[in-house]
């Protein structure tokens, strides 16, 4: 049931919180370098789907396969290691470490993977330049604007050369102009580095930066592009 050539695929995921079903047979797949938008109304289960796909939470049943490996067969430590080495994350806000400078924040995933400080910061600066925030290197997150902070977060998500980026409402806290620029830079950088992006959003204008969209409704994911 894994679509051919997919990098990350989920099949028939079910997840219940108490008596409330969050996912009720959701399936999903993304190919390398593909940007897929996950859309749906509030409470439809789209964030739960993203968290399951990223190995942050475990579904009650169903399968998730990443690069031929079954996620549920991995230990917590293995999943954590996978998140550090292969996945990048961008959230709506509150994701940068306030005590670190922007360049240290971007270098953080590399440092956690054992890269030496100088080399990590050099790579971090290259990504920051790509995201047009290289001049913010010495500043702390509290000293930069929301749009700049979000670009720093995108640079951090890309710095450790992940295979998949999970972006949960990455422009939710930004105005249209800044939000669009963040989406432009995120999708351009991801496509050129062949990084897949799973983009959770409720905004159609943000979803329009994707290659394909999947709608989650009542815990089920529908891919209309491929269903028609």
């Amino acid at each position: 049931m894994i679509p051919e050539g997919s990098l990350l695929a989920a099949h028939d995921l079910r997840k219940t919180y108490g008596s409330t079903p969050a996912l009720d047979g959701a399936s999903f797949s993304v190919h390398p370098g593909e940007v897929v938008a996950v859309m749906g109304p509030s409470g439809s289960g789209k964030s739960t789907l993203l968290h399951c796909l990223a190995g942050i939470i475990t579904p009650d049943s169903g399968t998730i396969t990443y690069a031929g490996r079954e996620l549920s067969a991995m230990s917590d430590a293995e999943r954590s290691a996978l998140r550090r080495s292969d996945f990048g994350f961008v959230f709506q806000f509150g994701q940068l470490v306030p005590e670190l400078t922007c360049v240290e924040n971007v270098a953080l995933p590399l440092r956690l993977n054992g890269v030496k400080r100088k080399a990590a910061e050099r790579t971090a600066l290259e990504w920051m330049e790509r995201l047009e925030v290289d001049d913010l290197g010495p500043q702390r997150p509290g000293e930069v604007s929301g749009g700049q902070g979000q670009r720093v977060a995108v640079a951090r998500a890309l710095a450790a050369s992940p295979k998949v980026i999970f972006a949960d409402e990455p422009t939710g806290a930004l105005d249209s102009l800044n939000g669009e620029r963040v989406m432009e830079l995120l999708t351009e950088a991801a496509r050129s580095a062949n990084v897949a992006v799973v983009l959770v959003t409720h905004e159609a204008r943000v979803a329009a930066y994707s290659d394909r969209d999947v709608t989650v409704r009542d815990g089920r994911a529908r891919d209309l592009e491929h269903a028609v």
Binding site: E184, A207, A208, Y209, S210, D213, T215, L224, E225
Partner: peptide, 20 residues
């Protein structure tokens, strides 16, 4: 409604690409 939604999003993608 879903089919229409999909057609709208397809057009939005084309326009976003052209805009870019």
């Amino acid at each position: 409604l879903d089919t229409q939604r999909s057609a709208h999003l397809r057009m939005m993608r084309i326009l976003t690409d052209r805009k870019r």
